[in-house]
Amino acid sequence: MVFNLLFGNMDVHLTDKKFQNNMKKMLLSLTGIGLLMLSALANAQSVLTYDIKNGVTPNLMTWPATYSGAITPNSNLSGYDYGRPGGLSALPLFDYTGGSGTLNDGAKLDKYPYHFFFSSMDQSSITLHLSSPSTIHTIDFFSPTTETALGNAYGSGNLSGATISFGGQSVSLSSDPWGPTCYLTSCNDRFNLLGTSLDGMVTDTITISNFSVSRPELDPLFFVSEITVNGAANGGLPSIPAVPEPQTYAMLLGGLAVAGFMARRRKQATREA
């Protein structure tokens, strides 16, 4: 019925070779569309630099984190007693600006013992600067796997949520632990932006703040050895949709209709001969 509606009143005269050429062109077009759609799937986007607000000293507990930018003490004090068991209850906090290091050096689970410590009590934030404008699908926090009680207890999997902000909008998300097991949960954590108000927005700067942990009764700590951003780099152009546009379906339907129409004509010509 669809074929009759589309082609019933048309007198199409195509040789088999022309038909094959047209079909090849259509298939190439559909393949190109498919590749564009695949490019919208999650791919790691490069984090050039990052800033940290209200971070602790990079050599806390003799487990150093590296950073190439400026590290300056601010007027805030930690709400968590990082100095235990020495009894220091108010360690100074630092701002990290204009650099890169441990969180974007490409070393994930094998980076022990180099990582940053954070506490959900310190009102810390991490701002990531990407190499190009991108749509963001997921943000992954990695922890090094360790056999120590401290490492097993305070991996990124201890996170339970955070606020993700860019483009003048913010969304508070619960996180999803994944990966190897560190104590009571997985070592790593993931923030999924698909389906949120930030889905499809283009940005080259992401701020992550308002961290919460899943086991505050143990300690509000978590440490991070790497952060990766997964999405689609598109140079600031609108996001390529994951679901085909209506015209894509129309093209596919038209191509199938042409194929069916020509097959019917060949069958009719064979009977007449």
Rank of each mutant, 00 (worst) to 15 (best):
Q45K: 04
P73H: 08
T31F: 11
G99Y: 06
Y96C: 08
A42D: 13
M61V: 12
S124F: 08
P85H: 09
Y82W: 15
P113M: 05
P113C: 07
G55Y: 03
G86K: 00
K108V: 01
S89P: 00
G79N: 12
G99W: 03
T31A: 14
Y114V: 03
D105C: 02
Y80C: 06
A42W: 03
T62Q: 10
D81P: 05
F94M: 09
S75R: 11
I71N: 08
V56H: 07
K111T: 00
L36F: 06
G83M: 08
L36H: 05
A65Y: 02
K53H: 08
Y50H: 02
G32P: 03
G55Q: 03
F116L: 10
T72L: 14
N54Y: 03
V47D: 00
K25T: 10
Y80V: 00
D122W: 07
F118V: 02
L30Q: 13
A44W: 02
G34W: 03
T31C: 10
Y80Q: 09
F116I: 01
K111G: 08
A70I: 15
S46D: 05
A70M: 10
G98H: 07
V47K: 01
T31E: 13
Y80M: 09
M121R: 15
Y50I: 00
K25D: 11
M26L: 14
S100Y: 07
G101D: 04
P64W: 02
L88H: 06
L28N: 14
S120N: 13
T72Y: 13
S29M: 13
G34R: 08
D95V: 00
T62H: 04
W63M: 13
A70R: 12
P58W: 12
G98W: 00
Q123L: 09
W63R: 13
T62D: 10
F118A: 10
T57P: 00
F118N: 10
L27F: 12
N54D: 11
Q45S: 12
S75C: 01
G55C: 01
S29E: 04
A107N: 14
T97M: 02
L103T: 05
K25Y: 14
S39E: 07
K53I: 09
S100C: 07
Y114H: 15
S29T: 14
N74H: 05
F118T: 03
T62C: 05
L48I: 03
F94H: 09
T62F: 13
P85D: 13
L48V: 07
T31H: 14
P85K: 11
D105I: 01
S100R: 10
L36C: 04
S89M: 14
L36W: 06
Y112M: 11
I52W: 11
A40P: 03
T49E: 09
I33F: 02
P85Q: 12
G32I: 06
A70F: 04
T72E: 15
V47F: 04
L27I: 06
S39G: 02
G86M: 14
A70H: 03
T31I: 09
S75A: 15
G83I: 09
P92A: 14
I71E: 10
S39Y: 01
S78V: 03
S124P: 05
Y82L: 15
P92T: 07
